[in-house]
Amino acid sequence: MSLEPITFAALAVVLIGSAVAVVLTKNLFHSVLWLALTLTGTAGIFLSLDAEFLAAVQLLLYAGGVVTIVVFAIVVTERLVGDRITQTSRQLVNGFIISGAVLVGVLSFVLRSPAWGPRPPIAGDLTKAIGQSVLTRFVLPFELLAILFFAALLGAIYFARPDE
């Protein structure tokens, strides 16, 4: 309720602009940088939705961790190949058509549904609520997530083994 539409509009412009830049930039490294901006914009959106915890997680993991990993990957692969990989895209028109069609489809779906009205007042501390529900209502997915991480860790170690 406290956010003005103007802020939202600004964030939206940043988001969409940087997203377009991500997919259209020829240089891969620049693309990653634009992605970082996009992810930051998303964090801003989360803030505007009063989800501070999530904004923090977004910035830490996404804008921090994922971008770093991707940069590392680019550096490594560029080294392997030996020269700068220029980005060329394939079948731009087809891609535009298909994504445009999906956009139209989803929008038509969304815009026909009835309006929801203003957002309700916040009931208590959201972060605390997240923590509580993770350990009570969603404890099973939480534990499964731990197993997933374990598996990912094993996979990463396996990938990282030296060649015999």
Partner: peptide, 20 residues
Amino acid sequence: PQDYVYGLAVGLLLLLIWVQ
């Protein structure tokens, strides 16, 4: 795989159309 993503997108479209 990108071509398969095309297939996925088309399928999604058809689903949207069918639902509406």
